[in-house]
């Protein structure tokens, strides 16, 4: 059986032949056009074992065998299930590699993940597709805005370390979130991915940690790795008795202390001094953490006349006066 490859997409005029091929007639070693993620085999495997391959693989004649254009996963599953043959659409071998890949791109009905888009762009780049065509034609095909910036940003993602890419792919981070790894060495990226994996960090929380580390490294003229090493970061990953959330808050505190040593010191001192204040009625004491406006705010909840008497006593207590004086001096 034969027909138009995409009747609803008139630009692609290529014809196909619909038939079946034995598995040994197909060579899956050439992965030139492979760009989809390898995960989620089990669902597809279950479906194929129950109802067979619904959507034929797309292949193209390459010498004595056929190369896969689309359907690498289906082929692997067919092999694992010991199927003797698979349904295929055979593309005309004379069509250009670019058009072949465009067909491969259009043959998937689902939305591509971020890394799949990146791989697709990279394949197109290797096929020497001119840049304006990449931007104008292929970015919309991948559901991306028509912009040089996006093309550049997406292509740069592949410069990240392998474990970072895995992390990005698994948690489906956005392009903006991914930028947090920009400029870090592969080693540093791997360390941070380890931290993220251990504490199950995604998005904003990890972004804030990396931003503080990065700023500390600039402030202290050290690399992010050196900063982490100085903090003995491994102790936070390998805490046995300490709970995960405790270890994470300790790590965050240490990072903050590295980034804001003076502010953290002053705030810590204030907390200690504040504890020394003894006021019997419910109260809330605060200060402007910016250190800009000297002064304290003391909020009191007084409900009975007796509490007023108690308050007068509390505020005239020599020890309390000393604590308040020390607090004010710090501010």
């Amino acid at each position: 059986m034969s027909g138009d490859i995409f009747p609803s997409y008139p630009k692609i005029k290529t014809k196909y032949i619909f038939t079946s091929l034995k598995l040994d007639q197909i060579d899956n070693r050439d992965e030139t056009f492979r760009f989809t993620d390898e995960e989620n085999y089990s669902r597809l495997q279950k479906s194929i074992s129950q109802v067979g391959i619904i959507y034929p693989l797309m292949v193209q004649k390459k010498g004595d065998t056929y190369g896969i254009i689309s359907g690498f996963k289906r082929f692997q599953i067919a092999k694992a299930l010991n199927l003797s043959q698979v349904p295929v659409r055979i593309l005309d071998e004379k069509i250009s590699p670019e058009l072949t890949f465009e067909i491969a791109l259009l043959s998937h009905s689902r939305e591509y993940r971020l890394l799949e888009k990146v791989r697709a762009l990279l394949i197109l780049k290797k096929l020497r597709v001119p840049r304006p065509r990449l931007v104008q034609h292929y970015l919309p095909l991948l559901d991306l805005p028509v912009s040089e910036y996006y093309l550049e940003s997406y292509l740069k993602i592949l410069n990240f370390s392998f474990s970072t890419l895995n992390y990005l792919s698994r948690y489906q981070l956005s392009l903006k979130q991914i930028q947090m790894f920009k400029g870090l060495s592969h080693h540093e990226q791997n360390l941070l991915v380890d931290v993220a994996e251990e504490f199950k960090l995604r998005g904003l929380e990890l972004q804030n940690i990396i931003a503080d580390l990065r700023e500390s490294s600039r402030r202290n003229h050290q690399s992010v790795y050196q900063i982490l090493k100085e903090m003995n970061w491994l102790q936070f990953l390998q805490g046995d008795t300490n709970s995960r959330s405790n270890r994470l808050s300790q790590l965050k505190k240490l990072i903050k202390e590295k980034r804001y040593p003076e502010l953290m010191k002053i705030n810590q001192e204030l907390k200690i001094i504040k504890k020394g204040l003894k006021i019997s009625c419910p109260h809330y004491l605060s200060w402007d953490g910016s250190l800009e406006r000297p002064g304290l705010k003391l909020l009191l909840n007084i409900t009975t006349p007796e509490e007023i008497q108690g308050l007068i006593k509390d505020l005239s207590n020599g020890r309390n006066i000393l604590v308040l004086t020390r607090l004010l001096e710090k501010l």
Binding site: E215, S216, R218, R219, H221, R259, Y260, P261, E262, L263, G289, S290, L291, E292, R293
Partner: peptide, 20 residues
């Protein structure tokens, strides 16, 4: 490296070094 010194947001909303 100037912006990485320890700063606070002052009363005018601008970033500045700590008072000390």
């Amino acid at each position: 490296r100037l912006i990485y010194e320890e700063m606070i947001r002052g009363l005018d909303g601008k970033m500045r070094y700590l008072r000390p």
